[in-house]
Design a binder for these strands. Structure first.
Length: 838
RNA sequence: GCCGAAGUGGCGGAACAGGCAGACGCGCACGACUCAAAAUCGUGUUCCCUACGGGAAUGAGGGUUCGAUUCCCUCCUUCGGCACCA
């Protein structure tokens, strides 16, 4: 089939018509989102960028498919809000200021200006009238206000504690911002150090349990798992042991059923009771050990494969369940930062305690015995003599032994009260008043203080007489001073400013000082979705009517790297606001989807230092935004990501050009008045059905391949004389509507200028699927003989099972295999295949 | 060590709900057009064999089933998270 094709179509100039339409859409306020009670709302949100200076391909990858889906929702009849803004506080701008003296505000605003232009080149449906910039005083006024509300409700507090400090970023970090085994700074990769500092915290742990509840959320399983692991809930009991001197020692254990096997206790070296219990003859050794533990870095100290070390304090504790006198040791495998900093050690049933007991020759008492004793139970040598002999800690199920009133009680491997042994002991402890059921979390309160300039000031004032008080709300915002010296000192430049910190106490009016630390920028991003509702509102952080209409966010998209940071903070923040009566509802973002990462062509991570970054601006110049958008949707499963392929985009560019050519071809094949459009309509509506489904489910890559396939069908149909037929006109119209969310400019250009349809295609309704038209009339079914495909039969789509069966058996190929015999079984999977078993 | 995700052609990936493995695209090969190249169009492209036919194949091995990329078990590899958490 040979056709005359025009040479490369010079009329295809996306660089020209894309700009034209962007300008017109903006002039017409096509994407302005305003409250419309007559329509269902859809709040689509994509994570806002940090204004680093240039948009990179990762931004495009995150944003343009999100935009396409928002556009799809809009065509489906939703009133869609799809806002954009800038997470504009943060270290890079301040570090740049230290380097070259340019004020962060100036640089940030310049970067934002450049990025706004780049964002506009995407052709996204952002409502720019709702843009919010977090470093704008009209924004951070409310960031400060929120801090004060949290403070007033007891959710912000100040405490002295050992905190993580990044020596390169020169600031403290939240626990979430320290990553991996090597405990490095999330931002710069430098190993963090510990510092004892007084800092502001938010009481995130108050919401630990509620944050573990994801019932209202349609979030990816892996995010829920990451958050669940991060919070690290464990169930057990707290039990009060006593020192010989009579002091209480509270411990947390997940295994109260092993209390009778506690043969010693271990304190963290920093535990407050250590000094008091240490016997004179042990003092020297204890002090030496404490000093050595203090010198070690956390990495060294917390590495699990390190051999356990410890020192006997000379002190003893009384085990409250059996009044046994047991020695107290200190060891650095017990951490002051988890639980109470003291543990009961049950060497028979805990691997760490076992290793410690072996090394220091401490007694091991078995209190859980496999039942029945089984030679195959790996760690149990079991047997003939009472107590058996353990060659390793036994952590499996069994029955309690050597445990006074509980001997014979079953123990399984369930956690908490679900375990009969644990349940029985907890009840008994509570009855006796020596312990109670308890839950412990690995989750920490959110450290919010940063010793940096370029962040929202913490609006607190310290007075010698009245302590810490918030800045009166009518004095907000506390503005950042403009004249500061850029110095990376580990203390906020605000502290070094000659006058800024001097103020008066809001209680007594006497001279007082301001807090000079600023807030973690995750505080700004915890409420930006609310800022978009009514940016820079001056009566309240947001307009209530806007809130009631738009919230919660229906679809939130962004990277998974924020699973335990931003996504956890913003959930905490929303719940705290709810409890303070500021917002309603339990969750801020109902549906979450994560895109993957675009890797460099060599499969490595893209980075400026490697020089392997793909610049979207260059691609847009070369191919047009539509092609870049489409390729980003096509080249990988969105949630997986993939390496960039600079040849691969050519295929998508070719498809775009073929779309253009199909609609603008000056010499199309002649129409055939006898053309039967049924097949074309069938393909169009089948594609429409798939594309609708795939948009709903974020399966962008198959949207594009379906559209490519349909285009190929349309070329064939046109060859067959389809042009001008009703089926053709319908196909053209539906094709452009399906294309509109993906490639908004070319769709508009062809819709308005080629088809002459009313502007704008983006205000059209998503077409309904004509199920009748989509239905196949004849279907081809593979016929398997003993599980292998041997033939194909064509039957009417509505053929009965019997008809299909006899058609299959009538096949010459099947007959050959049957060789005159009767088949054992014939299975007809309707619409799928026939399976003949011989 | 624990938790999670993923392993399909040379490459990115597709496969509704257990039913034709490899859609769509890249790349490659050949052909048309061209003085030529590019662009465009067409054809082919998982592997193997004795090649109009047959066999094998979705990380490996096993199981369930008429039938398994899909479900179950064991294992391997890669990536991500957590990790002396009591």
């Amino acid at each position: 089939m040979k056709t005359e094709k025009p040479p490369k179509d010079k009329s295809f100039t996306p660089q020209v018509f894309e700009k034209k339409w962007q300008a017109k859409w903006e002039a017409d306020k096509l994407y302005r989102a305003v409250i419309d009670e007559g329509k269902p709302k859809h709040y689509a949100l994509t994570m806002l960028p940090y204004p680093s200076g240039d948009l990179h391909i990762g931004h495009w990858y995150a944003m343009t498919p999100s935009d396409a889906r928002a556009r799809f929702k809009r065509m489906q009849g939703y009133n869609v809000l799809f806002p954009m803004g800038f997470d504009a506080f943060g270290l890079p701008a301040e570090n740049a200021a230290i380097r070259d003296g340019i004020h962060p505000m100036k640089r940030t605003m310049e970067n934002i200006e450049r990025m706004r232009k780049q964002l506009r080149s995407m052709g996204a449906m952002f409502d720019w009238e709702r843009e919010a910039v977090s470093c704008d005083p009209r924004y951070y006024r409310w960031t400060e206000w929120f801090f004060i509300q949290l403070f007033k409700h007891g959710l912000a507090y100040r405490k002295m504690s050992p905190v993580d400090f990044c020596p390169r970023c020169n600031t403290t970090l939240a626990r979430e911002q320290v990553w991996g085994e090597n405990r490095v700074c999330e931002r710069c990769g430098t190993p963090v150090i510990k510092k004892d500092l007084e800092q502001w915290f938010f009481k995130t742990t108050k919401y630990a349990d509620e944050l573990l509840n994801f019932d209202e959320l349609d979030w990816p399983e892996r995010v829920k798992v990451l958050q669940t692991n991060w919070i690290g809930r464990s169930e057990g009991a707290s039990v009060i042991f006593k020192t010989e001197q009579g002091d209480d020692i509270e411990i947390f254990t997940t295994r109260p059923d092993t209390l009778w096997g506690a043969t010693f206790m271990v304190f963290a070296p920093e535990h407050p009771l250590v000094d008091k219990i240490t016997a004179p003859e042990q003092r020297e050794a204890v002090e030496a050990y404490k000093a050595q533990a203090a010198r070690q870095s956390d990495i060294e100290r917390e590495s699990a494969d390190k051999e356990k070390t410890g020192v006997f304090t000379g002190g003893y504790a009384i085990n409250p369940v059996n009044n046994e006198r047991i020695p107290i040791w200190i060891a650095d495998y017990v951490l002051m930062s988890y639980g109470t900093g003291a543990i009961m050690a049950v060497p028979a049933h805990d691997e760490r305690d076992f290793a410690f007991a072996q090394k220091y020759n401490l007694p091991i008492v078995e209190v859980i015995r496999p039942d029945p004793p089984h030679p195959l139970t790996p760690n149990y040598l079991g047997g003939e003599k009472e107590g058996g002999e353990l060659k390793a800690a036994y952590t499996g199920a069994g029955v309690m032994v050597n445990s006074g009133p509980f001997n014979g009680t079953d123990v399984n491997t369930e956690k908490g009260r679900k375990n009969p042994g644990i349940r029985a002991v907890i009840d008994w402890l509570e009855e006796k008043g020596i312990g109670k059921e308890a839950v412990n979390y690995r989750y920490r309160d959110w450290l919010i203080s940063r010793q940096r300039y370029w962040g929202a000031p913490i609006p607190m004032i310290y007075c010698e007489k009245h302590g810490w008080n918030p800045v009166p709300e009518d004095q907000l915002p506390v503005l950042l001073p403009e004249d500061v010296e850029w110095r990376p000192t580990g203390e906020s430049p605000l502290k070094l400013h000659p006058t800024w910190k001097n103020t008066t106490c809001p209680v007594c009016g006497e001279p007082a000082v301001r807090e000079t630390d600023t807030m973690d920028t995750f505080m700004c991003s915890s409420w930006y979705h609310l800022a978009y509702l009514s940016p820079y509102h001056d009566k309240a952080p947001f307009d209530e009517a806007e809130y009631n209409y738009w919230m919660p966010v229906d679809t939130y998209t962004g990277g998974i790297e924020h699973a335990t940071m931003h996504l956890l903070y913003t959930r905490f923040f929303h719940k705290a606001l709810r409890d303070m009566g500021i917002t309603e509802g339990n969750e801020p973002m109902i549906q979450l989807r994560n895109q993957g990462m675009v890797l460099a062509e060599d499969h490595s991570k893209m980075s400026k230092s490697r020089g392997n970054v793909v610049a979207p601006d260059i691609l847009v110049n070369k191919y047009g935004a539509d092609t870049v958008r489409a390729y980003l949707m096509f080249f990988a499963r969105w949630e997986m990501g993939a390496p960039w392929d600079s040849q691969g985009i050519e295929g998508t560019a070719r498809w775009m050009r073929r779309v253009w050519t199909l609609f603008t071809d000056p010499t199309p094949p002649k129409p055939d008045s006898a053309y039967d459009g049924r097949q074309l309509r069938r393909r169009v509506h089948q594609t429409l059905k798939r594309v609708t489904h795939d948009f709903e489910n974020f399966e962008f890559n198959t949207i594009i391949s379906s559209l490519m396939e349909l285009l190929n069908e349309m070329y064939k149909a046109r060859e067959a004389g389809a042009a001008g037929s009703p089926a053709w006109d319908e196909a053209a119209e539906i094709y452009l509507k399906m294309l509109a969310p993906v490639a908004p400019h070319i769709a508009e250009e062809l819709w308005t200028n080629q088809l002459g349809k009313p502007y704008s295609i983006h205000q059209q309704q998503w077409p309904p699927v004509d199920e009748e038209a989509a239905r196949e009339e004849m279907i081809e079914l593979p016929v398997q003989v003993n599980g292998k495909v041997r033939d194909r039969i064509t039957v009417p789509a509505e053929a009965t099972e019997e008809e299909i069966k006899s058609a299959a058996l009538a096949s010459a190929v099947v007959q050959k295999y049957l060789d005159g015999k009767e088949p054992k079984k014939v299975i007809v999977a309707k619409g799928r295949l026939v399976s003949v078993v011989i």
